[in-house]
Design a protein around this nucleic acid. Structure first.
Length: 428
RNA sequence: GGUGGGGUGGCAGAGUGGCUGAAUGCGGCGGUCUUGAAAACCGCUGUCGGCGGAAGCCGACCGGGGGUUCGAAUCCCCCCCCCACCGCCA
């Protein structure tokens, strides 16, 4: 949520923001919010005056002799009656402003590239050499199925499309990857968190997924709970409604959780293999800190670096792209995606997403802190993937495959794989 | 699912119709004392909005919504949430 003052001061910036994000309907919300706000700002002083007057009368009456009360009472009642409809309008306006404001997207930073979708993201860094295979490289699902590590048929039978079952060494490899990532983050000072994967609506709203993301979310209607699509939701919301002490900041969390996504509207897209699935596990990093842009930028660089460390440890080629306006979500001010090389796609595929929000989420969450001067302010929030599986298994299997279908285990992961340097048997 | 107890300021916890935006304690800030620190003592210390250069003044807010009343944290109704015990299950 943006501060209404930001809209008043520079409404064009907010409209422009929505357009840059290719959300024209949300640009309209700016004007709706402002229009309602203008009415409220006329109404408020008037209402306050009336209330002050009525309140003063009530105080008088308490001190009066009973005989004098009668005459006064009539006047008081009339004032009360008059107040009533103005108060109703006030309540209505406040609710509607809130509603409109919730639709206004965060303003993208000026360095966000212009563009309509992910094809217009801008590469800013490339790391590692793409491997040239002297043999016919297989896709991860070919290797996985041949090794008995992967079963999409039974998964579909059990749970429908976009599901999978991992077996044996691939199940272990997934765990190795996740555990390595957590250990790396703990070493870097992040506090490990095992959060709930079902959350109430305010957490979805506060992090900016609602309104708008309802179609992507599995919901337990009976209980009014939502399955999270990322632990960003519960972890960023951990301190919602609190006023933290500046001494407690920054809060740096690393969470591991199951994630659930309906993937509505993606029919026919990435249907093979492990790329786009309904449930997966993710290690996520979340940072909460004081409202200072420079600090946010530092954290952002650091959380990107953390993800890079993982990919480097896994010996995977990747690149970093600055996400363009049209591919940015509602709450983000800036986002880097990290894409890892996936031979079966003959392309880099998104594996990480590092966002900064400034105070947009914090404002919606009521996430605040008291600064050195005693002033209460909204925090800044950021997050990035550390590793998400099974998607990361795609590059791991494909980049490290041998002609016979066995797969090399990167040195960093061997301690988590019983010391083995190779997994699988000769299958090709 | 059943029964009972609760939701008040950064935290803990008083407060059952006007003198309460809210006692008290803790914490925080400032000061006295000290070579320095601690302790002790003194003072200040809720959030949001409006007007104002400021001091300040006004308004809203005691889980949420509605109601009674000239006046509600306090009374009534509905909802949400938390806790305890029992039952059931893992």
């Amino acid at each position: 949520m943006l501060d209404i003052k930001v809209l008043r001061d520079d409404p064009e910036a907010a409209r422009q923001a929505a357009r840059k994000k290719r959300m024209p309907d949300r640009a309209n919300a700016v004007d709706r919010a402002l229009q309602l706000d203008a009415e409220l700002r006329v109404l408020t002083p008037k209402l306050d005056g009336m209330r002050a007057d009525q309140k003063a009368g009530s105080k008088e009456i308490g001190k009066m002799a009973p005989a004098d009360r009668e005459a006064f009472l009539g006047g008081q009642k009339a004032k009360k009656e008059e107040l009533k409809h103005f108060e109703e309008r006030e309540k209505q306006l406040k609710a509607e402003i809130e509603q409109a404001l919730a639709l206004v997207p965060n303003i993208p930073d000026s360095e966000v590239p212009d563009g309509k979708d992910d094809t217009e993201n801008v590469e800013v860094k490339k790391h590692g050499m793409v491997r040239q295979f002297p043999f016919a490289a297989k896709a991860h699902y070919e290797i996985g199925e041949a090794q008995g590590w992967l079963d999409f048929t039974r998964a579909a039978e059990l749970s429908g499309s976009r599901n999978y079952v991992l077996f044996s060494d691939l199940a272990l490899l997934q765990d190795a990857v996740l555990r390595f990532s957590i250990d790396l983050m703990v070493e870097r000072g992040f506090v490990p968190v095992d959060p709930p994967v079902m959350v109430r609506d305010p957490a979805m709203f506060g992090t900016g997924f609602f309104p708008g993301g309802e179609e992507q979310t599995y919901r337990c209607e009976k209980d009014g709970l939502n399955l999270i699509g990322t632990s960003e939701v519960p972890v960023t919301s951990l301190h919602a409604g609190e006023i933290l002490s500046e001494a407690d900041l920054p809060k740096k969390y690393v969470a591991r959780s199951m994630c659930f996504r309906r993937e509505a509207g993606t029919y026919g897209k990435d249907t093979r293999g492990l790329y786009r699935v309904h449930q997966f596990q993710k290690v996520e990093q979340v940072v909460l800190d004081i409202a200072d842009k420079a600090r946010s930028l530092e954290h952002h660089a650091a959380i990107v670096q953390n993800a890079e460390s993982c990919l480097q440890a896994f010996e995977l080629p990747y690149r970093i792209v600055a996400v363009c306006g049209g591919d940015l979500g509602v709450p983000q001010a800036f986002k880097y995606d990290i894409e890892t090389w996936m031979p079966s796609r003959n392309a880099y595929g998104e594996t990480h997403s590092a966002s900064r929000f400034y105070d947009y989420q914090a404002r919606r969450l009521g996430l605040r802190y008291r600064d050195a001067l005693g002033k209460v302010r909204f925090c800044h929030t950021l997050n990035n993937t550390v590793i998400a599986s099974p998607r990361v298994l795609i590059p791991l299997l494909e980049n490290h495959q041998n002609p016979d279908g066995t797969v090399n285990v990167p040195a960093a992961l061997r301690p988590y794989m019983g010391g083995r340097a190779v997994i699988g048997k000769k299958v090709f």
